[in-house]
């Protein structure tokens, strides 16, 4: 019974942890929009703008990745079951 409760709570927790994906999504969309504006203003600097944008997007992604790692740990390597 306790195990069932822990498993259910872990699954819900993994789902809640993935709410962290909202932030990077907004941030990356903002970065991509600004990059599109910059390319529109200065089409000759397209290569530099694209690489800078990808770099910034990947760095902004790390908060979402933390949420993902928490969710993966809860689903596949749950430390709470061992505490019973």
């Amino acid at each position: 019974m306790e195990k069932a409760i822990i498993l259910a709570a872990s699954a819900i927790g993994a789902g809640l942890a993935m709410i962290a994906g909202v932030g990077p999504g907004i941030g990356q969309g903002f970065a991509a929009g600004k990059a599109a504006e910059a390319v529109g203003r200065q089409p000759e600097a397209k290569g530099d703008i694209t690489s800078t944008m990808l770099f910034g997007c990947a760095v902004a992604e790390s908060t979402g990745i933390y949420g993902l790692v928490v969710a993966l740990i809860l689903l596949f390597a749950n430390p709470l079951i061992g505490m019973l």
Binding site: A58, E61, S62, I65, Y66, L68, V69, L72
Partner: peptide, 13 residues
């Protein structure tokens, strides 16, 4: 920690 989690998380996801 953030560098390793970023690379691992992307590929594992």
């Amino acid at each position: 920690i953030s560098m390793s989690f970023r690379h691992f998380g992307n590929i594992a996801a």
